[in-house]
Design a protein around this nucleic acid. Structure first.
Lengths: 135, 135
DNA sequence: CGGTATTTGTCCGTATGTATA
DNA sequence: GTATACATACGGACAAATACC
């Protein structure tokens, strides 16, 4: 965890980039816990704010998931449902509101589909476990 | 801006919720600037960290956009492109990586479509200005 | 079940740098 | 060039959730 102080790249992004590379490189696998924040501080020499910010970046990318009092875990590839959409359906995507996140039980970094079928009200679909197939 | 200290709801979320309501209620319109962070501190009685966190929530929801040295602005409804997708196409959505954000020139809080047409490589499409129509 | 330790969450303050007006 | 406004980074204090024994 060598952070280049003096770099143009902010320190929290440097740390996020390193952790991201380790996750994508398989050094931390799905479901596995990352080092604790205190541990990451020691490893990187950064302050608490900066370490937490780096983890926040990874959360917002949907790469990890943090559980209070427990730790930050690599978000595994979840089982995917294929959903067929028919003629005239309009599909948009956005980041859910906080309330929608609670309702759908979504972690940070997971967008939603908004499915508008002809003659029906808009339907909200979590974006992490769903794929739409044009039928 | 009356913040209930002693509430179970964290202060930054209270502030975010109030600002969100004001934006959705039309008190702050598209393109308009929100009060500066210092001003929001004065108005709410909260600390700098907390005010900034509240604005971060709104950014991650795609509701506002912050320009360094200038201010935080309400993200207007942008012009939308309708794109027709054909049979066998598979659509997924996710939060873009930092690099993809730079490449596509995206603000925070904007997810992307991943369009997989039969026999082709995956195509990335910004989610804020695109709607997919099943043809 | 309880008590303690670990780990993350919230909140505050300060200092300095950078971008914009 | 000065003033305003946001960005980065550090630190400390206490609360809340979880894990461990």
């Amino acid at each position: 965890m060598k952070i280049d102080l003096g770099s143009f790249e902010p320190r929290h992004r440097q740390l996020a980039r390193m952790l991201r590379a380790q996750i994508e490189g398989g050094e931390y696998r799905a479901g596995q816990r990352l080092p604790s924040e205190e541990r990451l501080q020691q490893m990187s020499g950064l302050g608490r704010t900066t370490v937490r910010r780096a983890l926040g970046v990874l959360r917002s990318e949907g790469l990890v998931r943090t559980v209070t009092g427990s730790g930050t875990y690599v978000r595994g590839n979840q089982e995917v449902t294929m959903l067929e959409v028919g003629h005239g359906t309009v599909i948009s995507t956005r980041v859910p509101t906080e309330e929608e996140r609670r309702t759908l039980g979504l972690d940070e970094g997971v967008p939603v589909f908004v499915i508008q079928r002809p003659g029906e009200g808009p339907e909200l679909l979590r974006g992490d476990t769903n794929r739409l197939v044009v039928g």
